[in-house]
Nucleic acid binder design. Structure first.
Lengths: 333, 333
DNA sequence: CTGTTAGCGCATTCAC
DNA sequence: GTGAATGCGCTAACAG
């Protein structure tokens, strides 16, 4: 890597001091119009690019926010990222995306990277093996603002943006019973994931409250999309539901095609409702409804929440907890 | 943001020099076991975190690679990112993802950010309005290694990883005709995108060569997923194909549900083949085939290509052009 | 084994 | 208006 031109180089050539060049480059009012022009020209002529590492070090600030998520899957997170990116750019920050791959060690490592880099703030969706937040507390003590979104832990004390998981499941059950379903199947995500359990509890509670006598329900956890398909298939002979609740897009992606195959043979259909970012359902042939878990909105809200925290310099009294609504939508409406 | 502990702080407290502390922290062989231990302990006790900006400046290297893509959509790119992330981590680099949002200005801005940050290398999928590569040449002249993948321009002179777009389309047509189709519809992506045109040309050439007399074909460009659905619908009354080629997952996502609705009414089906990352097809009820355009592999190959370039210090004679295969797969096999 | 010295490139005080 | 001096925090010669 050859040597790059620096402010010093420019200053030497122009016969002025480095500070003058620096000021000219930053359009400082003290510098003459003519000189500014000359500096600019020479800078582009010599391919001068300010060394971000140096200027960041000097200013001990890098205008960067970090996003830490388990994985950039095709579900949900692309929307979240889009929302965050938009908000963050508007406010002149860079975004850095880190993946924890559902691995606590990796998550801790990522936090450390954030601290070392002196990012201004962190938005994080916790991985499923995270049960305590010491690593986040550490970052917070280093002066980094933090917002948790989507996946959290029970006793979280950080600002949070997400949905009311239990309530969403209850709404889903309520909808299914309203459609006349009496035999409900709930399919949930990985059992280590807190939202899986929140949503399952909501589901089960609602089933017990809302199902008529003679009704029945069952809940299962799927490790991933393929497992959801597999479990549904295996279960069908013993427990044939007339209403199915899928807790996420990933589950829906496993369930819908399977259901579609089953329907081929049986010429009968179960009602389906899921929780979804709102893109996937429109790909399926079968009709279904979903509680719209809007990733884009979650993203913008999360970023906004972080930016607010940043502005108050971390000295806010109340810890915001922002709960997004999840309206019910049909894919054939 | 309060003051953070620095090496100097540690050195003062321990009564040794900063360089000794630095060496201890880096497990330098010259430092005594006992002292290392003491330094380590004090560091954690005082929550010392090395300032990455400072150390990067000093070493004028930040072990970072950049990925620039049009957008993190739910199609293809999540797989690519996964592949790249894996490779890049293995080699101890950080990855930084930038989006151009199909905007040349933004793409140029991103390149500038990369130069300012002194990243070691850039992997880029060009946005659709990019027709010349001056901005990349600029980065290359600053000593940054570059690999273009997936979306490129005709006269590209940079290393490239992708598929043979024309050939893929031809294989698709060949498959359709082999299935007995004689009336083909090709649906392509945004008309400004080079791969849209490459794939369309391949399609049309192959149609002219392979279709029997009496056969017919038609190609259309769709601006996005919704437009693909719309166009197919609008077209159906005038041109009812018995074979359809969809150039991408995005197109497939628009086409398949529409086709499925049409099939409901007409009780007949067209053969479908697409180019796909290989996830989406399994969500659809209708059977279809696809040329497997493996994003994960493209990702690892791209990263590997960049890492190779890095190792040779940019002093390689030949410019690698890596073309991935696209085997045909069925979603019901 | 350890300390001293000297920057990396930049932005900012304080002088003039 | 402009220049000289200083230091952000860290590492790497070079000396001992």
């Amino acid at each position: 890597m050859q040597k790059r031109t620096t402010i010093k180089d420019l200053s030497r050539i122009l016969g002025v001091s480095p500070s003058t060049v620096s000021r000219a480059l930053h359009d400082h009012p003290d510098i003459g119009k003519a000189l500014k022009q000359k500096v600019r020209e020479l800078a582009t002529a010599l391919h001068y690019y300010p060394n971000a590492m140096a200027s960041q070090l000097r200013q001990s600030d890098n205008k960067t926010l970090a996003l830490i998520i388990p994985e950039i899957t095709m579900f949900f997170f692309p929307s979240v990222i889009e929302g965050i990116t938009q908000k963050v750019r508007e406010h002149g920050y860079q975004l850095m995306v880190l993946q924890s791959h559902e691995n606590l060690q990796q998550e801790i490592e990522n936090i450390k990277t954030c601290i070392n880099l002196r990012v201004n703030g962190i938005m994080i969706s916790l991985c499923r093996d995270t049960h305590q937040l010491d690593h986040l507390k550490e970052a917070a003590e280093m002066g980094i603002s933090i917002v948790i979104f989507d996946k959290t832990v029970p006793n979280n004390r950080f600002p949070f943006v997400g949905i009311d998981d239990k309530n969403a499941s209850q709404k889903a059950v309520s909808w299914l019973t309203f459609q006349g379903c009496t035999k409900l199947l709930g399919i949930f995500g990985h059992p280590h994931m807190s939202i899986s359990n929140q949503r399952r509890e909501g589901f089960e509670t609602a089933c017990m409250q809302l199902l008529p006598t003679g009704g029945a329900f069952k809940s299962v956890h799927a490790l991933n999309q393929a497992d959801a398909a597999h479990q549904l298939h295996a279960l069908w002979s013993q427990f044939e539901p007339d209403g199915i609740f899928c807790m996420s897009d990933e589950v829906l992606a496993g369930v819908m095609p399977t259901l579609s195959k089953i329907a081929d043979n049986q010429a009968k259909s179960s009602k389906v409702i899921g929780i979804s970012d709102g893109k996937l359902p429109f790909l399926f042939h079968e009709s279904l409804h979903f509680l719209h878990h809007d990733g884009f909105k979650i993203g913008t809200a999360t970023a906004q929440c972080l930016l607010n925290g940043l502005q108050m310099g971390g000295k806010s009294i109340d810890v915001p907890v922002i709960i997004q609504e999840t309206p019910i939508v049909g894919n054939r409406q």
